[in-house]
């Protein structure tokens, strides 16, 4: 077991040296497709040898013919297996950030420029394989590669293997890609967290902030205003896009501060902050974030959530962690 592991590592290093790193879309050309018989292929070869001996032993011409037909069929499937990968175009297609402990998703896009369909392509990281996909002639497919994560920070994906055993499973052709892709892992939101401390000036008199509660008037529309605040009735009457403005003195805008988050160590305090951010966004609230040396001004919405969680994930991490 140790020997095969050692050999596998040597082969991987050799492939990495001879191919170099990959940037952007990669077309799988001959020089980077490897092919070897599977154990099934070896068994097929042994069967052919036995058939050959049998036919020769009985000096049976039709038996020899059958043996040679099957041997040629095996060679044809070898070529078909190789061609199933050749000229396939593989490109990067986005990542999905997880919380620590969940799986990071790296998307791969396959596109088939050939005139024949490609069947049963399997993409895999060193740890996990994605489900096989088939692509019609001229078609495209997206594959999700999942990488397990343990803690917040960057996970790196620097080796992808694309494999096919089509058509007969007698041969395995594969190509290796060395992208340099990373995906940010957010800190896992704490299971239980105390409610965030009240924002300063919570009971401050007459703090007229823009809020969502009481209708206060109309103003001109600017890109970025929430569509649900557009005054469609006014638009229907006057043809002018106006936005309803509301005033809400009720709720002050909280800025979550690392200094105010409780917890025994940095990681658990970041987890508490993550919990506050996730909850606030789920309730449609406006929120901001303050870390030492960084302040994200309050805003509502998904984009803000991503920005704040990313700031937490990257806080005081230096090196990307390997997956």
């Amino acid at each position: 077991m140790r020997l095969t592991g050692f050999l596998r590592q040597r082969v991987r290093n050799w492939i990495r040296r001879r191919q170099g790193p990959d940037r952007g879309p990669v077309t799988l050309r001959r020089g980077r497709i490897y092919i070897l018989p599977t154990s099934l292929g070896v068994a097929f070869g042994l069967m052919l040898f036995a058939m050959l001996l049998g036919s020769l032993n009985y000096a049976n011409n039709l038996g020899l013919g059958l043996t040679f037909l099957l041997a040629s069929l095996g060679l044809v499937t070898m070529q078909a297996c190789h061609r199933n990968l050749e000229t396939l175009i593989v490109s990067e297609a986005g990542t999905e950030s997880p919380f620590a402990g969940q799986e990071a998703i790296f998307q791969l896009a396959f596109s088939n420029p050939g005139r024949a369909a490609r069947c049963d392509l399997e993409a895999a990281t060193t740890a996990m394989a994605a489900d096989p996909v088939s692509i019609a002639a001229g078609g495209e497919a997206t594959v999700n590669l999942r990488v397990a994560t343990r803690r917040r920070g960057w996970v790196l994906l620097d080796r992808i293997e694309i494999t096919t055993r089509f058509p007969y499973g007698l041969f395995r052709a594969w190509a290796v890609l060395h992208p340099h892709r990373r995906c940010l892992v957010y800190p896992r939101p704490a299971d239980t967290a105390p409610p965030p401390p009240p924002a300063p000036g919570a009971s401050g008199a007459g703090a007229m902030r823009r809020g969502d509660d009481d209708f206060a008037g109309l103003k001109d529309y600017h890109p970025g205003d929430a569509p649900r605040h557009i005054a469609w009735k006014a638009y229907a009457k006057g043809g002018e896009l106006l936005v309803k403005q509301f005033s809400g003195a009720a709720e002050p805008v909280p800025i979550f501060d690392l200094a105010q988050a409780p917890g025994p160590d940095l990681e658990s305090r970041l987890s508490v902050l993550a919990r506050w951010i996730v909850d606030a966004e789920a309730r449609g609230k406006t929120f901001g974030l303050r870390l030492p040396g960084l302040e994200i001004p309050p805003q509502p919405g998904r984009q803000q959530r991503r920005r704040c969680l990313a700031a937490l994930a990257e806080y005081q991490t230096v090196e990307p962690v390997d997956a």
């Binding site: 069947c119 049963d120 399997e122 096989p132 996909v133 088939s134 692509i135 055993r165 007969y168």
Partner: peptide, 14 residues
């Protein structure tokens, strides 16, 4: 038959 039993995916019936 070998082609059928060696298929690994479901997509794209041949």
């Amino acid at each position: 038959a070998l082609l059928e039993v060696a298929r690994r995916g479901h997509g794209l019936a041949l």
